[in-house]
Every structure is written in C-alpha cells, then in structure tokens.
Design a binder for these strands. Structure first.
Ligand code: MN
Ligand code: MN
Length: 294
DNA sequence: ATCATCG
DNA sequence: CGATGATAGCGCTCA
DNA sequence: TGAGCG
C-alpha cells in the first residue's frame, strides 16, 4: 500500500482544554491539516521544512526535526543540503502534497517552519520579514509596532501583509522578487529596524540580549538566514488553545486576538473567505535602491 | 513516533 | 526482552 | 571561542 498511511492514537489529547474551548486531539490535528491542505500547501511547497514534533502532545517533550528519518516512506520528497556547522548532510522534507501533510501530522509534527526560499533558488528569500516578538503577554503592543513597521515599509515603497504568529507575536511580510540573497535582505531589514528603533525607541528594540530589551517589542530580523525559519501561515502552534498563524488585514489588526484563530475556528473562516494570505499578498517587489547601499 | 543501542 | 537516547549541540551576532 | 537567542 504505497498510498496508505496508518494513523495512530487519534484520540490522544494534543492540546488540553483551554478556557471555553475543548481539548484538541491528534485526530483533530490530522483533520485540520487535511482540510487546510489547499491553503497550507502553497506556503510549504518546495521549501525545506523544519518541524517541531510533540509525540505526547503539547504538554510533553518536543524536538526539532530537520533531517528526514530513515523510516520515512520512500514517497516523501526531500532535498539534501549541507549543514555548515554540523558538517553533515541534512535531508529536508519538501511538503508538496496532502499525503505528506498527513504523514507529518501522524508523526506529531505540530509546528511547520519552512524556509523563506525555495529549492530552485535556495539562497534567495522571496520575502523581507519582520518577526515581532513582544516582551511578555502584550499582543496589543505588538499590534501598535506592526502598524509602525507597515508605515515605515510604505514610506520606503514596500507593501506588506501581517499575520499572527499564533503565539503573542506578529509577522510582517513584504514579498520580494528573488533578486537578493539572504544577506542583502537581512541587512536591509536591519537598516529599517534600526530606523524604527531610532524613531520609537520607547516601544521598539533591536536589542539582541533579552536583558537590554526592557519590556519593548523586539524586531527580530534573524529569521532572514538560510536554515532559519518561522511558523508558516496556517501552521498550528504548540500553545494553549491550539492557535494557528493567521493572516489579518491591517484595518482589522487592532480588533483581533491570537486566540481568534485556532484549529477549531480557522477551517470555517477559510471555507467562508478562502485563502486570505494569498488574496492579501501584494505582488513580489524590488528593494528600493537607496536601501541597498552597502 | 520511531529506531538504534545497551543492559 | 525493556529501558534509554536521539531526533538542531542549527545559524547568527555580539562580547 | 563561546554565550545567548529564536
Ligand atoms: Mn516570533
Ligand atoms: Mn523571533
């Protein structure tokens, strides 16, 4: 049976009940990824994938997985890349079809973290991304900073979209033509981040060390690197309430909370509105010349 | 979750 | 046998 | 070279 995947432990609780919302089982996770495949797969296709697995649910032990295990079915597509520091080859999963999504869910791969570049141009990310990390708790503050980042990008001729990270953060995403390597895009993002920190240093920091952040929202540009990654749009998160990273139009941002978007609520939203991420996404852009100067 | 290895 | 360990000791920046 | 970070 080359097609079939034996699913196991479908009733195992992966997220305990949280507030009003009931527990979410492994079976619920599998149902979610299957139903969401049409919107999930475009975000994963042809991108090296890192997953975070929770074989005993989000309350249990977890581990990152980059290298595809030997016991993976032979039809799982992979790309072999060299890990510089570890000095070894790593076979990354390419999650290009529903079957692979299903297999990953059965492997308890709850979080899906694809690269920002695709296999046919691995060194060139197709977005400039800001990962906004709040100090603790404060989604409200993150929203305000996200709106500032949007203004800053717009002042520099770049359109962007936002999604909840699923945790307390926000990802601001400016799609790019694949003309620039990671280093160039990261340097540009750092330059923009420094500018925002100069203008709004009370609310925003680019400080690497936690101690220096002092309750401010951290503008993390460190995701712009080969081998780095963040949770993809529509990816479940291993957080209380089974939240999902979800696109939010700018005008709605201050009226939502991350737990509006969960494994329980999102399929219905997608049935009603379709792939909001795709629909909100501007066309791939060039970086403005004045930002590129070394 | 699954396998390799160790007692 | 069952128990134990491994699965990113990554990639990057700053000190 | 290593600590700290995500
Ligand atoms: Mn984040
Ligand atoms: Mn971050």
């Amino acid at each position: 049976m080359p097609q079939g995947i034996e699913l196991s432990n479908l009733d195992k609780v992966f997220w305990p009940a949280h507030g009003e919302s009931p527990a979410v089982s492994k079976g619920d996770l599998i149902t979610y990824v299957e139903e969401m495949a049409p919107v999930l797969l475009p975000a994963l296709r042809n991108r090296p994938l890192t997953v975070i697995r929770y074989p005993n649910g989000t309350g249990g032990a977890s581990f990152y997985q980059k290298d595809t295990p030997k016991y993976a079915p032979e039809w799982i597509r992979t790309i072999t890349l060299h890990a510089t520091q570890a000095k070894r080859d790593v076979r990354y999963v390419l999650c290009n079809d529903r079957r692979t999504l299903r297999w990953l869910a059965n492997q308890a791969a709850i979080e899906l973290h694809p690269w920002l570049s695709r296999v046919d141009r691995l060194e060139r990310p197709d977005a400039l991304v800001f990962d906004l990390d709040p100090p603790e708790g404060g989604f409200e503050r993150t929203v305000q900073v996200a709106l500032m980042v949007r203004e800053l990008l717009r002042d520099n001729g770049l359109q962007a979209v936002a999604k909840t990270s699923g945790s307390k953060g926000i990802h601001v995403w400016a799609p790019l033509q694949r003309r620039y390597d990671y280093r160039t895009v990261r340097r540009t993002a750092e330059r923009l981040a420094a500018r925002l920190e100069a203008e709004a240093g009370d609310e925003v920091t680019t400080e690497f060390s936690k101690a220096g952040r002092g309750g401010r929202v951290y503008l993390d540009t460190g995701r712009l690197a080969p081998g780095a990654h963040m949770a993809s749009v529509y990816s479940p998160r291993a957080r209380p309430g089974a939240p999902v990273s979800f696109p939010v139009p700018w005008e709605d941002l201050s009226r939502v909370t991350p737990l509006d978007f969960t494994i329980a609520s999102v399929p219905e939203l997608v049935r009603a509105d379709g792939d909001r991420w795709k629909d909100l996404m501007p066309a791939p852009q060039r970086l403005p010349e004045d930002l590129l100067a070394d």
